Computed example of a mutant assay.
Amino acid sequence: MSRRWYTPLGVNLLLGIPAIVPMLMLWFLLSNWPLAGMGLTARIPSSEHGDGPHAALLFFGPMIAAGGVLWWIVNRLLARRTQLTAPGYWLLSLTGLLIPTAVAVTVWP
């Protein structure tokens, strides 16, 4: 059963549900990180201390890293049991991971 394409898709859809929080944290970091003087989106005004995104990286970084490592370990074990090619498998896995975040962002009030 794990040789089919829908098994990794289902596993990554399930992993994508709790991954909504690290994905939003990653978006927050990317949108507020200075990139040639500008963030990717409108920056949140910093406090009077001017610590910028470094404090957010201190708090969000470990959770984002833990989510990425967990996703990689699960998919590394599952990739050996499928008949999919490596690029096809990882593209399917990444798509399955991002679907819950995309749904949550589009239906958010």
Results as ranks from 00 to 15, higher is better:
residue 1 M to H: 13
residue 2 S to Q: 11
residue 2 S to E: 14
residue 2 S to R: 10
residue 3 R to E: 15
residue 3 R to V: 13
residue 4 R to F: 15
residue 4 R to A: 12
residue 5 W to L: 09
residue 5 W to F: 14
residue 6 Y to S: 09
residue 6 Y to Q: 06
residue 7 T to M: 12
residue 7 T to Y: 10
residue 7 T to W: 15
residue 8 P to S: 02
residue 9 L to N: 05
residue 11 V to N: 01
residue 11 V to R: 00
residue 11 V to L: 01
residue 13 L to N: 08
residue 14 L to I: 15
residue 15 L to F: 06
residue 16 G to K: 02
residue 17 I to H: 03
residue 19 A to G: 09
residue 21 V to S: 04
residue 23 M to G: 10
residue 24 L to F: 03
residue 25 M to C: 09
residue 26 L to F: 14
residue 26 L to S: 04
residue 26 L to M: 08
residue 27 W to N: 07
residue 27 W to R: 11
residue 27 W to G: 04
residue 28 F to E: 07
residue 29 L to V: 09
residue 30 L to Y: 12
residue 32 N to A: 13
residue 33 W to H: 08
residue 34 P to D: 11
residue 36 A to H: 08
residue 36 A to C: 13
residue 39 G to T: 01
residue 39 G to M: 03
residue 40 L to H: 06
residue 46 S to F: 08
residue 48 E to R: 13
residue 51 D to A: 12
residue 51 D to H: 14
residue 51 D to P: 05
residue 52 G to E: 13
residue 53 P to H: 07
residue 53 P to V: 15
residue 54 H to V: 12
residue 54 H to Y: 15
residue 55 A to S: 10
residue 56 A to S: 14
residue 58 L to N: 09
residue 58 L to Q: 08
residue 58 L to G: 07
residue 59 F to A: 13
residue 59 F to W: 15
residue 59 F to H: 14
residue 60 F to K: 07
residue 62 P to E: 07
residue 62 P to F: 02
residue 62 P to T: 06
residue 63 M to E: 06
residue 65 A to C: 04
residue 66 A to E: 07
residue 67 G to R: 05
residue 69 V to Y: 08
residue 70 L to D: 06
residue 72 W to N: 07
residue 72 W to A: 15
residue 73 I to H: 10
residue 73 I to R: 13
residue 75 N to Q: 04
residue 75 N to M: 03
residue 77 L to A: 10
residue 77 L to S: 07
residue 78 L to N: 00
residue 79 A to G: 01
residue 80 R to M: 02
residue 80 R to L: 05
residue 81 R to Y: 07
residue 81 R to K: 11
residue 82 T to G: 00
residue 82 T to I: 03
residue 83 Q to C: 09
residue 83 Q to E: 12
residue 84 L to P: 02
residue 86 A to Y: 01
residue 86 A to M: 10
residue 88 G to P: 05
residue 89 Y to T: 06
residue 89 Y to Q: 03
residue 90 W to V: 12
residue 92 L to M: 02
residue 92 L to A: 02
residue 93 S to C: 14
residue 93 S to D: 08
residue 94 L to M: 14
residue 95 T to M: 07
residue 98 L to A: 03
residue 98 L to M: 07
residue 98 L to C: 01
residue 99 I to E: 02
residue 99 I to M: 00
residue 100 P to H: 00
residue 100 P to L: 02
residue 103 V to G: 01
residue 104 A to R: 01
residue 105 V to L: 12
residue 106 T to K: 01
residue 108 W to S: 05
residue 108 W to R: 13
